[in-house]
Design a binder for these strands. Sequence first.
DNA 1: TGCCACATGTAAGATGTTACATGATTCT
DNA 2: AGAATCATGTAACATCTTACATGTGGCA
Lengths: 190, 190
Amino acid sequence: MSKDNTSFYAVLGILDAGAGSGYDIKKAIEYEIGFYYKISNGQIYPTLGILASKGYATVDIEKNEGKPDRKVYSITETGREIFREWLLRPVNYHNPGGNELLLKLHFGASAGAEHNMTLLADHMGIKKRELGRFNEIASYLNIKTAVTQQEIYSYIALLYGQTLAEANIAWCGEAMKILKAMEGKAGSND
Amino acid sequence: MSKDNTSFYAVLGILDAGAGSGYDIKKAIEYEIGFYYKISNGQIYPTLGILASKGYATVDIEKNEGKPDRKVYSITETGREIFREWLLRPVNYHNPGGNELLLKLHFGASAGAEHNMTLLADHMGIKKRELGRFNEIASYLNIKTAVTQQEIYSYIALLYGQTLAEANIAWCGEAMKILKAMEGKAGSND
DNA sequence: TGCCACATGTAAGATGTTACATGATTCT
DNA sequence: AGAATCATGTAACATCTTACATGTGGCA
């Protein structure tokens, strides 16, 4: 329902790759995408409830001795559609939480290289424009002309922006190269 | 009261630099640190109320014709202490929101270069450890041995982590150089 | 003996966004 | 005529974290 509920789609994406319980999903997220995306029980379990109530997932209960029964969730066709819709939407850069681009790339493996190339090209464009703005500011906020300490700290912040934007641009280039190579391989010998 | 309420300290930090109304504060944040930190009215105005109720700020009302009266807030001594306490606390890297390090560097201008050097050294250490972990993963998740598409996408995510960690490390180095140079200048001719 | 893995979940609160209400004045 | 600037604020909601409750079985 909501536009940008990242955790909603993260859970749905994990289910898209295979059925599992809340516990399984937590482990999968930690293991697969844990380094750029975190999730807590307080999000997973309510999300699974919503998923089931909307018909995006079905539940199977597995009896478990001594432990609570495992509630194993499977994605439905509707769920898949909803998930694909999200995958194909452009990345929301206002979303302050986790790295939506990496999340979409991760889940987009099966969605084909083309779409991911677009996501990367978009990202590169955004970072290039960002870098352009920083460079413009740098032309008058120069370290050589900086006098006050405040100016120096502002310059350091600017440098951060420039450095990170450049790193993003470089990464996009590399990633696109890799995807291009992969497409070539897939086309020629698979 | 809360541990990591970034917006609370951002507002307090702006007030530390000079008294102002909610409107002024919003403008100041947009202008000074807008590129890495955002704030909305829904945060500013309640925060100012809390600040006043806790005795961290006092209010002066300026009559304004045709417009609502300006409520000009000034930081108190207690407010300053609370703010300094935050400044000297290490950066909370679990905080998902805005870039706390840049915020502290920005406000830390008056707190002296030494503390900021420590913040940068800490940051560098964290990013170096992060990079070490990524490199370790890279040793077995290698692009040459990647077979499945999923492996390739995981590799791209890893590359992102590496590239950004390296950029952070490089930036820290530059920033520390700048601060060192500044200290030298301050010592020799000011 | 105590902690970790398994497995479910909830309650409370922190933090933030979006969109609205109000209304005069000044610029385009 | 309409948009922007000035200036206050609130209400609803979205999102997420922290900490707890509950309990077994296995390993050190």
